[in-house]
Write a protein that binds this DNA or RNA. Structure first.
Lengths: 242, 242
DNA sequence: CGATGTGAAATGCTTCACAGCA
DNA sequence: TGCTGTGAAGCATTTCACATCG
């Protein structure tokens, strides 16, 4: 059983973590939380790897970038490792989030359980539809988009989530940027134009389906060189775009 | 102006397309659709690249993997290029989709407009809540999960979307796999265990936020070696997990 | 003995730079 | 002339293999 408090090297401040690794850290974290909840206090790179569908050596290399947190012969202390990943991902801060567009998707996001647990505080919900404004969703009351400037002046907003119809998405993005929001998560099926100083991440549900259909069409087609019988698993990552 | 019908080399069947490229193709496709709708019938790799936030050379290399579809001196014919990408992604087929879990997220997905346009046909909506069963969402009536076997025997189901609470997710995944579904898109915040023959893709909204907060914390922290002032943009990709 | 941590090799991806064509 | 298509170089990531240590 490893002992978190005695050995374990302190994490060097701000080593350069490869993007590919950053993309996997939240996945490890989620798995570790489940594993811990199940009562397993120590995990090996092998176990973690098989749950994440990742080569064990890759897991070890990823984790070694955060510091030497494992115990040879035993593995990693689950709870301790979660803490280290939290710290690395900046989840010891509180990140105020604003969601714009309170339709089905916006509601699903607002209700999302994991948010609060991970330090994301939904501080504002915005829409333009009078039928929704004033409604309480979770802890927060929906307000009109025009109030964004006021809200932003009262408190900093770290992340803006765009869950509007595509026709409104660019306008909302502009508005958020004007209000000082520097990270946008866009769920609208719309290509946004934002400055290079804005961190933009795009989650499009039909894109996910398209990628799956691509791999599936390769699976069923007994193609050329020995066929490609099996695609094992595709996960999330941050690479691919610079 | 390029002429789609005359020159343009036919696409070789089943070249090996890098995963990273596959991840970008749907993005190009969405951009091209918007560009075409705006009336631009020819695009350069430069334009496409700037909209996708991707190096122009990368765009050219990506597209050249599908075949020689550009016209030197002019660029790519927008409509023709869309067709080629569609074909490559297998979007000339119809992909029957089943959505399990008709809460806010399930509804948002069921209503998703782009689905039908891209050959994804939502053929079944399933839940276990009597209050929802029988309700018509879009074109389809919600049925009980127990009917899955019957539905699957009447028609093939290509892709299963899991939009249930996490506690039900593994059970639903097992059920879908038993019914012959070989591709799962999981929105539940739950680590699924599925066989290696199943294509599994995991979209977790708090993971997206975690990654953004990581980069944001690096942006504001004027760290070591010359600081990292700006993260340009992060997009979707398929790499990072094998 | 069993599992980590890590150089070094192998692989994959991106970018450059420019020949070649419309 | 302008923009594509592509070898080749450069860079990043993954995987291997094993020394190391609890």
């Amino acid at each position: 059983m490893p002992n978190p408090s005695s050995d374990h090297q302190a994490a060097p401040t701000h080593r350069r973590i490869p993007e590919a690794t950053v993309g996997r850290l939240p996945v490890y974290q989620r798995i570790l939380e489940e594993v811990l909840r199940a009562g397993t206090t120590t995990v090996s790179s092998e176990l973690l790897g098989s749950l994440a569908r990742v080569n064990a050596a890759k897991v070890r290399k990823d984790l070694s970038l955060l510091g030497s947190f494992g115990t040879r012969g035993a593995g990693y202390d689950t709870a301790f490792l979660i803490e280290q990943i939290d710290r690395e991902l900046g989840l010891n801060h509180v990140w105020p989030v604003v969601i714009v567009g309170i339709g089905n998707l916006g509601r699903a996001l607002a209700h999302s359980h994991g948010f609060a647990a991970r330090g994301f505080r939904v501080v504002a919900l915005l829409d333009i539809d009078a039928a929704v404004i004033g409604e309480q969703v979770g802890e927060v009351v929906v307000r009109h988009v025009d109030e964004l400037t006021t809200i932003a002046s009262e408190q900093p907003l770290a992340i803006g989530v765009i869950a509007t119809p595509p026709s409104a998405a660019q306008r909302v993005a502009d508005l958020l940027m004007q209000s000082g929001v520097r990270s946008l998560l866009n769920f609208a099926p719309k290509v946004l134009e934002v400055g290079p100083e804005v961190l933009l991440r795009y989650v499009d549900l039909s894109i996910e389906l398209q990628i799956m259909s691509f791999y599936q069409s390769r699976m069923v087609a007994p193609g050329e060189e020995g066929a490609m019988p099996v695609i094992r698993s595709i996960g999330l990552s941050t690479t691919g775009f610079d």
